[in-house]
Design a binder for these strands. Structure first.
Lengths: 170, 170
DNA sequence: TCCATTAAATTAACATGTTAATCAAATGAT
DNA sequence: ATCATTTGATTAACATGTTAATTTAATGGA
């Protein structure tokens, strides 16, 4: 990693420093790294990195796992609520549900009181699959919590909640 | 929105409550909403919602815009550094660079000292494009900052930074 | 009751995320 | 100098993100 080339590149960066030759006019962009979108993206990336090996080992994507978890908490829901709860757009959810149904982890039926709505629930196989992964997933989260500190995580979760409340338009 | 059906659904949720019939064994999954991955995802979504109309109006995706911004701060970089700085995986970056090059916003050349490396920089057109969007983008961020509070945002950014530091494995 | 409108879900089309495989160039040890 | 190894970048293949269009069912007013 520390070959001659990267050392020279480091020198270059240090020497050129902040000479970005940007004119200020009062509405400048912030440094990209120090913005909410980038910081949230990178933080999430750092967290998910720890879960990916587990999910991949069991052949589910992050999104599929989210759908399964939400369904476990919800017993039976329609697709709209499911999409909202899992933060997945409707078109993506349509495809994901097909995949999960093909694996027999979920089953769907029409809402008898509203023919447009699809009601989704876990099958016993789906429940079993979650039971199989949940302990490892929880262990990873516990290790992460130990490393970061529960207090810090809780305060971070509260701040994120506050951010979203502040951004709620309507 | 508040039709009879959704009111009945609300009653159902209230009545069924937390009766999820899950056995506790010490390694339970957290409530999906109250986890770092979900909270970070939702928060980012809430923030990006405000920028999407602007980006769409100018025909760039969120990722393309990130690349342009990083390039503006960096003068000239190789693809690896660019990918890292914009939090975009190498394969995605390859495709994005093609798109941006087709629009003449960037130009690429081989690193003369290392034939594998691609050096990327903005063209004058790319600079002009950024100048065109930057004020509106900064204005949106300023409005967001006013709504959330600069202090809260700064503390959030610091916490996110701390989270990533705590998660740095190596 | 009829029909225009609204709503839930899917499909379409294109961009990106993700991992694996490939290719070309540089590196390092012999 | 040679060759196996490593590295930077691209391509491949499939899943999801994103917006628009479409389909089907429900709703609401004449």
């Amino acid at each position: 990693m520390l070959n001659m080339r990267s050392i020279l590149a480091m020198f270059h960066r240090i020497l050129t420093g902040m000479s970005h030759s940007n004119e200020k006019d009062g509405f400048e962009l912030s440094k990209t790294r120090r913005t909410l979108p980038m910081a949230l993206l990178r933080a999430r990336e750092a967290v998910m990195e720890r879960f990916r090996p587990l999910l991949q080992a069991h052949g589910v994507t992050e999104q599929q796992w989210r759908v399964l978890r939400v369904l476990k908490e919800a017993e039976e829901t329609d697709a709209s609520d499911l999409a909202e709860a899992a933060s997945i757009l409707a078109p993506s959810l349509s495809r994901i549900l097909k995949t999960l149904e093909a694996r027999a982890f979920i089953e769907a039926r029409k809402d008898p009181t509203d023919g447009r709505r699809a009601l989704i629930r876990l099958t016993p196989e789906g429940h079993a699959f979650i039971r199989q992964i949940a302990p490892e997933s929880a262990a990873i989260y516990a290790e992460l919590e130990a490393r970061v500190g529960r207090v810090r995580i809780d305060s971070l979760l509260d701040d994120l909640e506050a951010l979203m409340t502040a951004l709620e338009q309507i």
